[in-house]
């Protein structure tokens, strides 16, 4: 069969394309500043990874550590709470019949099509008027809203939470809220993980909102922090190495988490594209 060699060649070329930049980042992060420009870029020279990491973590009183902490709060915090709220709303839209149900769903669905960047500027104006721009909340609160999560939660709840089960719980005397947290939420768990992942990436990738909103670098997420370092590379050459090591440090936990949770991406994406 001549199909197989051709197929494997395509796969091999693509693997090189996707992984070379990451390999280069890893190798570069292990090098001393002198070796970075003078040694083979895709292979190791003197390994100075530990020193480099120490330099990033201690540079300017450990501002990088603070950025990492901020990113965890912004992304994981907002995604956790946001997922819960989206799940509750989607669940109610799937299970209960009430006036205005379709209107709410359609408005939320319209929200999926509104680009997040179009909201950044008016959000900044509103928060400045309230005197709350350049605060943690100015980035955190808007990140909680996840209309696509409501859409996914509704589809998934309609498919995976049987009405008879909710009815049976009622007959047993369980309240609606208790039924949701003890029974329905568990049935929806795969969808909840997917919604969490979607929101996590959306917040993690949102660049315009923190860029417009934040002036105080102690509130920066790590992406914005590394971006500002990168803009100063020409004035402060030392930062070049710090940017690369910092990028590696901030990306490694995510890559590991994504690969471990990849199964949930597929499940949820299937749910999203069926309809």
């Amino acid at each position: 069969m001549k199909g197989r060699p051709a197929a494997m060649t395509v796969m091999g070329v693509c693997t090189v394309y996707f992984l070379t930049p990451i390999w280069w980042l890893f190798v570069s992060a292990t090098k001393t500043r002198a070796d970075f420009t003078t040694t083979a870029p895709l292979w190791f020279a003197d390994v100075a990874l530990v020193d480099n990491v120490r330099e990033v973590l201690t540079y300017r009183d450990g501002i990088f550590v603070r950025w990492m902490g901020n990113s965890v709060l912004y992304t994981a915090g907002a995604a956790l709470i946001g997922t819960l709220l989206a799940a509750m709303c989607g669940y109610a839209l799937a299970i209960y019949r009430f006036p205005g149900r379709e209107t709410i769903f359609n408005v939320v669905l319209g929200g999926v099509l509104v680009p997040a960047t179009a909201l950044a500027l008016p959000l900044f104006l509103i928060f400045s008027r309230a005197g709350a721009a350049n605060t943690f909340w100015a980035v955190f609160l808007p990140s909680l809203v996840n209309p696509f999560g409501v859409y996914l939660a509704r589809i998934y709840a309609a498919a995976s939470v049987p009405g008879e089960l909710v009815e049976a719980a009622r007959i047993d005397g369980a309240g609606e809220v208790r039924t949701f947290f003890t029974i329905s939420a568990r049935l929806m768990l795969p969808a909840l993980v997917t919604i969490f992942l979607f929101q996590f990436t959306a917040v993690w990738n949102n660049f315009l909102l923190p860029l417009i909103m934040l002036g105080d670098e102690r509130l920066f997420p790590v992406t914005l922090g590394l971006y500002t370092w990168n803009t100063q590379v020409n004035q402060v050459p030392q930062l070049r190495g710090l940017v690369l090591v910092g990028a590696l440090l901030s990306v490694v936990p995510l890559v590991v988490a994504f690969l471990l949770l990849q199964r949930f991406w597929r499940n949820g994406l299937g749910t999203g594209s069926v309809k």
């Binding site: 693997t15 992984l19 660049f207 690369l244 990028a247 901030s250 988490a257 990849q262």
Partner: peptide, 18 residues
């Protein structure tokens, strides 16, 4: 599948810097 998916874990800003 995993190899092709890895870049998605890298936020746009950092991918652009790399």
């Amino acid at each position: 599948r995993l190899a092709f998916f890895v870049p998605y874990a890298i936020p746009g800003v950092l991918a652009a810097i790399m």
